[in-house]
Nucleic acid binder design. Structure first.
Lengths: 217, 217
DNA sequence: TAGATTGTTAATCGATTAACAATC
DNA sequence: TAGATTGTTAATCGATTAACAATC
C-alpha cells in the first residue's frame, strides 16, 4: 500500500499523457459534467481504459466504482501533480530566434514556468529588450541565479556552447535544464535534463512520410 | 534477409537516436578519423554498443569486423535515411510567437525542411512580413498547397483551432503534420502526425525536479 | 594466426493490455 | 439487487541488453 505523502513516481510515458487527460477533462468540465469514467477519457484519446486508470492513479486521486472520478477534483490533482499551480522562476540562456520566442510565449505560466531573465554571451545582444525582459551578459548568471534561487534553466544556445553553458548552470545552483539543443548534456547526478529534440522530431516526421510515400508506389 | 531497395522501417526510439549518432560521427570526422566502432559511439553517448549497431543497421550500411564503419559513408547514410539531403517545402499555419520563431529559424534547412509560406486567419496578421516571408490568409492555403505540391504542414495555432486547421491541411493534400499544439489530432489513415508537446515536456521537467527536491528533504 | 568487432539470435526488462475480484 | 466501473494482479508486447558465432 502507498501511504499518503509518499513520493508517487510516474514513468515518462505516463507523465506525457497526463496533460492530454487534463485537456480532455477541461472539456468535460466545460460541458458541465460532474463525473467521468476512464472509458470516456480513453474513448476521446483512443487509449486503453486500463492505461488511463493506471496513469491517473499516480495523482493519488481515487474514483468510485460505477460513478467514476469527480471531474474538478481530478483536474485539480493533475495540475497539482505536474506543478502547474505554483509558478517557478527560470533563466533562459541564448537569445536567438528560438530563445526569443520562448521568452515571449506567455503560455508557459499556465504550466508553472516564468522565464524572468535572458542571458547571452554575444555583446551585441546585451541590453536588448526582448518582450519586456532585458538580455544580460552570461557572466552575470551565477550571481543572479544564486541570489534569486533559480532552479530551472532553459537552454537555447548553439550546439557548440551547450555543454559549457550547462556546466555554468550547474555551478550556479540550477537543478533542472530544459534543453533545446541537440546535444546530450553531461550533468552531475541529481540534476534533471529534459531534452526537446526538434531536429530529431522533424527527422521522425520526414522519415515516416518517406515510408508512407514509398508504400504508395 | 533484407534485399536492397526494400523499405527499412525503424522504431521511433531508433529514429530519435540517429541524429545523436550523426552528431558524434561529425565530431570523429572533424578529428580526421576514418573508421569508427559501435563501442566508440556508444561510449560517447553512454549507450549500449549493441543498440548502436542495431540502430545503424536500418540505414543498410554495413561495417567490417575489427575495423568498424567508414565514418563519411555512415554520416552520408544517416543523412540519406533521415531525409536531410533533399529539401522538402512546407507551409506553416499560425503566425504567433512560436510560429514566427520557427519561420525565422534557418537551421531546419539542414534537416531537409524549408518553410516557404505562413498562413493565419487573423486579419491583422495578413500581409505581415515575417523573416522575409509574407503571412497569407488561411483560405488561400488549399489552392497554394495543391499547386506547389506541399506535403508537410507545421501547426502553431491555438488548441481551439488545431483540429479545424488539420482538416483543412488534409483536404489540401498535406500528408504530414508537425504539430506544436497540445491537441491529439484526428487524421485519416496514411497521414503522419508528429507531436511536439512542449507543455508536456515542461511538465516532465518540473515533476522530476519536484521529486528530486523531495528526496533531499 | 589471434582477437577485435560485426551481425544476429536469445534473454531481460519495462510498459501496455487483458483478466478479474472488490464495491458503490 | 444487478451491473458498471474501479483498482490490481497476470499476460502480452516491444524495445533493450546479453550471448555468441561469423569474419576481417
Amino acid at each position: 500500500m502507498m501511504t499518503s505523502g509518499e513520493i508517487q513516481t510516474a514513468s515518462r510515458p505516463t507523465l506525457l499523457r497526463l496533460p492530454l487527460y487534463h485537456r480532455v477533462l477541461k472539456g468535460f468540465a466545460e460541458a458541465g459534467q460532474q463525473h467521468v469514467s476512464c472509458t470516456q477519457i480513453a474513448g476521446v484519446l483512443r487509449l486503453d481504459p486500463t492505461q488511463v486508470r493506471k496513469d491517473l492513479s499516480v495523482t493519488s486521486i481515487v474514483g468510485k466504482p460505477k460513478v467514476g472520478y469527480e471531474v474538478p477534483a481530478l483536474i485539480d490533482a493533475i495540475e497539482d501533480y505536474l506543478g502547474w499551480k505554483n509558478t517557478t522562476e527560470a533563466f533562459l540562456v541564448g537569445a536567438g530566434s528560438l530563445g526569443t520566442a520562448l521568452l515571449g510565449y506567455k503560455g508557459f505560466k499556465e504550466y508553472g514556468l516564468d522565464i524572468v531573465a535572458a542571458f547571452d554571451s554575444a555583446p551585441e545582444k546585451i541590453g536588448l529588450q526582448v518582450h519586456g525582459k532585458e538580455v544580460l551578459p552570461l557572466d552575470r548568471l551565477p550571481d543572479l541565479a544564486e541570489r534569486l534561487h533559480i532552479l530551472i534553466g532553459v537552454m537555447t544556445v548553439s550546439a557548440q556552447a551547450a555543454q559549457d553553458v550547462a556546466n555554468l548552470m550547474v555551478l550556479s545552483g540550477i537543478r533542472a535544464i530544459w534543453n533545446f539543443t541537440p546535444v546530450r548534456l553531461e550533468v552531475p547526478e541529481g540534476v534533471i535534463v529534459e531534452n526537446v529534440q526538434l531536429s530529431a522530431s522533424l527527422s521522425v516526421l520526414s522519415r515516416k512520410l518517406a515510408e508512407a510515400l514509398e508504400k504508395n508506389t
